[in-house]
Design a protein around this nucleic acid. Structure first.
Lengths: 253, 253
DNA sequence: GTCTATAATTTGATAGAC
DNA sequence: GTCTATCAAATTATAGAC
């Protein structure tokens, strides 16, 4: 157990470089030698400080997710205390969950855009040890926010809310990863300077939050009667009602 | 150039196995030996038929994307011909673009859910050669659908439409990859039987299409005046107007 | 804590017989 | 087209001196 207070440089420099390289090349695409040479530390230092490559990967996430998910809980506690028993507005829940995430992108001390992009791409990398690790790190915060959304949208079936939470995570994850076939949109390349610009988080936030909120409160799909005819199953029933007038109750107040 | 008409088995069996293993383990996480042993072909067969591992990866996608993006163009041509110059409805454009994709998941001959999940996770893997390849494969179809959306939503700034196209791709990509921290939602594990169930595409379609359509037609964000106060930048302005009454013009007819 | 040296495997690719 | 045998390089990890 390395508990010495000396040389926080090496330990943290490894984490910082690993975070950036995992973001740019993925876990499998990044070798220990790439990390140690760029961090200018000895190859054996990684195993000394972290034990293995997998443990390094976990630690890269642990130091960020610890802050993120704790902050999310604190914010939700504060919102619910202020609401005094009343349900929160959907926008409040989304702002607490995704706004906290996006705010990390503006603060290099919290990982900045480098960590956000790493998180975005890692959420679709189903290496077993990462999935297991994430499941543990996210268990509490997901449970809390699920129920906050259930209360915020009492007229939407809970299963539907879970699906939409899923879709919102996807939009955010993909937007953060920032590797799009629509290069025009994001305007940056991976590893680019713009890709790690803290202002990117603010620009993204202004665009994505209305999108997420609208999707979360979308009219309910038809009770999926005719699943036999593929070309008529989806989309057609969703044009006429476009918002507050449909089955979904808008947030109170 | 392998042009012989013999043994389509080996050639195609390599592609099928590679598709499944790349889906489950990613490109870097899948070795040639894993592919050849599972496909029960000789190790040298891959290089004989495809030339290299990178070329194999490209061919895995090429045979699917060729059909997908051609079908998307054909469908859009038909819709625009039927509209006789009038703009399409947003739901028609989404149905042609994403509905075609989801329909691949129901047909094993088109790759089924295995290919859809591979595509979903690969869109966030920014290995250079994959990005370059995708850019070429998607160039035409993206250009066509961009302009179809511009026409379908004449009152939404084009840049905003591009962002929302981006977000929609993200929801879809992430939902297809199916590796979520909300395990309850999807209910399947990667590599699981349920994960490759053709019915999964229909279930997903009924859930995701209304979400995408609502997000695409969300109220426009405030002109982002106060970017200084992070907690008030987003979300708060999006509660009151929840749909058709806002600045976004609903689709014609 | 840092470093050198190296073990033990695995990787993508190829030469050449059949 | 298929196969065996093999190369050259890269990988994670560790032992042991300082």
């Amino acid at each position: 157990m390395p508990d010495q207070k000396h040389c926080p440089d090496t330990h943290d420099r490894i984490l910082d470089v690993a975070e950036r390289l995992f973001m740019a090349n993925g876990y499998e695409g990044t070798s220990m030698r790439m990390i140690t040479s760029e961090a200018e530390v000895n190859l054996a230092a990684v195993n000394y400080h972290f034990g293995s490559k997998e443990a390094l990967m976990r630690e890269v996430f642990r130091r960020r997710l610890l802050w993120l998910n704790r902050e999310r809980i604190v914010l939700l506690d504060a919102l619910e205390a202020a609401a005094a028993g009343a349900p929160l507005k959907p926008s409040q829940v989304l702002e607490a969950f995704f706004g906290t995430l996006l705010r990390m992108g503006e603060d290099p001390a919290l990982g900045g855009m480098v960590f956000l992009r790493l998180l975005g791409r890692t959420l679709t990398e189903p290496a077993d040890f990462i999935r297991t690790f994430f499941a543990g790190e996210y268990a509490e915060v997901v449970e809390r926010y699920k129920h906050a959304l259930f209360r915020a949208l009492p007229d939407v079936p809970q299963e539907e809310i879970l699906w939409r939470f899923h879709f919102m995570l996807g939009s955010m994850s993909y937007a953060l990863a920032g590797t799009d076939v629509l290069e025009i949109v994001t305007g940056y390349e991976p590893g680019d300077a713009m890709a790690t610009d803290p202002a990117a988080a603010r620009r993204l936030s202004a665009r994505v939050m209305p999108f997420l909120l609208a999707g979360l409160r979308a009219p309910l799909p038809a009770p999926l009667a005719s699943l036999s005819s593929p070309s008529a199953t989806s989309g057609d029933s969703c044009d006429a009602p476009s918002g507050a007038s449909s089955r979904v109750t808008p947030s109170p107040a």
